[in-house]
């Protein structure tokens, strides 16, 4: 039990800090994140600019704070998209079974046969490289795995006595699904959604790094790394801090995910 709490506390602290920094960045940053200053180009970290400045003299700390918003918002919106549609598809497919299930799952499995980032790249070519494009592309790429998990949970739940009982009591199928089946799927949904939040933040930064994500000058951690790359020899901090932010965020989410899985996943209960 000790380790479980440790993971949860560290992970929870990191993610809470991320949310706080992103929230503060909405109202206040040390400098204007977009303001160019050619006299302060590539200034090393100092008392004035805690994390230094970039190739246009913009304050790195301020840009990282605004970049945190982009990560949180894109991650959150992507997860909401995938949870909503994945759960809907999984519930329908698992509850209906039969030919509807067959067709939906054949399509679902074909999408799963595509590595997620590749599907997102293809979809981004369609939706265009901006934050909404990323949200739709990643959301669609992640929906199939959510649908599969929910369907699996529904398939085993629908044979249980309490579902039978609900039907015998004369409850409508919609009511049974929403009142009795869905709440029992929440544990696997929560665990997967937590991981997805991390995948989305990582994919967003990778896509922005490739130049296919949020376009500059709007700062995201990924496009800051890409923009700083040609200058890392003179200004190593440009290649260091944005990556550190991504890595810390992912570490927080992974630790939190582990703690949640230990707590919620019944298969893991016997192991502790």
């Amino acid at each position: 039990m000790k380790k479980l709490t440790f993971n949860g506390v560290i992970g929870g602290t990191i993610i809470t800090l991320l949310f706080i920094v992103a929230a503060i960045g909405m109202f206040w940053t040390p400098f204007d994140p977009m303001k160019l200053s050619f006299s302060a180009r590539l200034a090393a970290p100092s008392g004035a600019h805690l994390l230094g400045t970039d190739e246009f003299g913009r304050d790195v700390l301020s840009r990282l704070m605004v970049g945190a918003q982009a990560s949180v918002w894109i991650g959150f919106a992507t997860v909401c998209f995938a949870v909503f549609f994945g759960t809907l598809i999984g519930l329908i497919s698992g509850y209906a079974r039969g030919w509807a299930d067959g067709i939906i799952m054949a399509f679902n499995n074909a999408l799963l046969a595509f590595p997620g980032i590749l599907l997102a790249l293809g979809l981004l070519a369609v939706f265009g490289a901006n934050q909404y494009g990323i949200i739709f592309a990643l959301g669609i790429a992640y929906t199939p795995s959510m649908a599969r998990i929910v369907r699996g949970a529904v398939l085993s739940l629908r044979e249980r006595e309490f579902i039978e009982a609900s039907k015998v009591m004369g409850n409508s199928e919609i009511y049974t699904i929403l009142r009795h089946i869905l709440p029992n799927c929440l544990a696997p949904i929560t665990v997967l959604a937590t991981s997805m939040f991390g995948w989305a933040i990582l994919s967003e930064s990778a896509l922005s790094f490739l130049g296919l994500g949020v376009p500059p000058p709007a700062p995201t951690w990924g496009n800051m790394l890409a923009a700083g790359r040609p200058f890392i020899e003179q200004a190593a901090w440009l290649g260091f801090f944005p990556g550190l932010c991504i890595a810390l965020t992912l570490l927080g989410i992974n630790l939190l995910g582990d703690a949640l899985r230990d707590k919620l996943d019944p298969r893991m209960r016997g192991l502790k």
């Binding site: 380790k3 990582l202 930064s205 990778a206 790094f209 790394l225 790359r229 890392i232 020899e233 190593a236 290649g239 260091f240 944005p242 990556g243 550190l244 991504i246 890595a247 810390l248 992912l250 570490l251 992974n254 630790l255 582990d258």
Partner: peptide, 29 residues
């Protein structure tokens, strides 16, 4: 166990493009 799992969790949290950039900076430049 704690050391191995801790290291593993840290390693998998580091984005490959950042790790690559750091390795390039250190071993290359």
């Amino acid at each position: 166990d704690l050391a191995l799992v801790g290291t593993a969790t840290v390693l998998l949290s580091i984005p490959t493009f950042w790790l690559g950039l750091l390795l390039l900076l250190f071993f290359g430049l």
